[in-house]
């Protein structure tokens, strides 16, 4: 690990506008620093700036950026009205990690691409312009949607996939003002600048996430993984589905580990709305989802996997 300066922020104004790298739970950042994938000169510890409460906001809920993943998943209101979020968080990492991991840090966690993390291979995300070793290499966990020639990494997390399905907002404090961004727009596709993973600008701090008013319906978080726990998703589906008299009245869906961001495609929700659920309909939904899907060899299986997992979730939600 490269030597660094360390300071603790006393409050939010202290943190906003800082040039230092923010550290919250440290569960992702410290690992990457040990590998020297991240080599910040200075760390600013934001664990004592507050923002660690879950509070009502309108008909929804505001989850502070420093609320731990464990606390958020265990919150009675979250479990009752936004169980999808709780399920997604609990599907990730391990209890020890969730005790440290924070809402803001989780949104900003970086990809698990092995070439990004090994600090030796060409990687446009780590070192722009060097190339992408994952293409032509071991890319079983990589993206099939929204990839670019520059990068095929995924956003690997679970929590943000649920937040995307729920259409939550990220609240961001900047040097001059605060702004709100939909989770669906928070992460970005790699394009030709894969070093950028989200819309945060230098000096900005995530202060929290707001959940909109609860929506009725079955909430399912389905994570497919190599082992039963403590593994990142091969792909995941977050779904809120409401049925009315045998037809799908309302659907909100997002997909994890298929792209550089939690994948949301409003056309799928539109397609399902008002329809009688059948395997054929689920297939059509998958056709839309996978219209532009592209495999890179070892991850080709994600295409049929996404199709089948979407079908499983829709079948479970609709009772087919």
């Amino acid at each position: 690990m490269k030597a660094f300066d360390y300071a603790r922020a006393a409050d939010l104004p202290d943190a906003v506008g800082s040039d230092a790298k923010l550290i919250a739970g440290g569960t992702n950042l410290l690992d990457l620093m040990k590998l020297e994938v991240e080599t910040p000169d200075a760390l600013l510890d934001i664990n004592r700036i507050g923002l660690d409460l879950i509070e009502p906001e309108g008909d929804g809920l505001r989850v502070g950026a420093l609320v731990t993943n464990s606390d958020c998943a265990a919150d009675a209101r979250v479990r009752k009205d936004w169980p999808l979020l709780s399920k997604a968080i609990l599907a990730g990492a391990s209890p020890q990690l969730r005790n440290k991991a924070t809402t803001g840090g989780n949104l900003c966690q970086r990809t698990r691409c092995g070439y990004f993390m090994d600090n030796q291979s060409p990687c446009n995300k780590r070192e722009p312009g060097t190339g992408c070793a994952a293409q032509g290499g071991f890319n079983r966990i990589h993206a099939i949607l929204g990839t670019s020639d520059a990068c095929i990494a995924t956003y690997p997390g679970d929590m943000a996939v649920a937040l995307s399905a729920l259409d939550a907002q990220v609240v961001i404090a900047g040097r001059s003002d605060s702004r709100t961004v939909r989770v669906r727009d928070f992460h970005v596709l790699p394009g030709d600048a894969p070093q950028h993973e989200n819309v945060l600008q230098p000096g900005e701090v995530i202060t929290g996430v707001t959940l909109p008013a609860p929506v009725e319906g079955v909430q399912i978080y389905r994570k497919v993984r190599d082992r039963a726990s403590y593994a990142f998703a091969l792909m995941s589906v977050a779904a809120v589905i409401r049925m009315d008299q045998g037809r799908i009245a309302h659907a909100q869906l997002a997909f994890g580990s298929l792209a550089h961001k939690p994948w949301h495609d409003p056309r799928i929700e539109e397609l399902l709305k008002g329809e009688t659920p059948t395997p054929a309909l689920f297939d059509k939904a998958a056709d839309l989802l996978l219209e532009d899907a592209k495999g890179y060899g070892a991850n080709d299986f994600k295409i049929p996997l996404a199709r089948r997992t979407l079908a499983a979730v829709l079948a479970e939600a609709t009772g087919v």
């Binding site: 092995g114 090994d118 070793a133 071991f138 082992r227 039963a228 726990s229």
Partner: peptide
């Protein structure tokens, strides 16, 4: 990696030994 022989999954997060579950 068959291009240079290096090990891609060189830690316990990526080399999957079974967990309790």
């Amino acid at each position: 990696d068959e291009r240079d022989g290096h090990l891609v999954n060189h830690d316990l997060a990526e080399y999957h030994v079974p967990v309790h579950r």
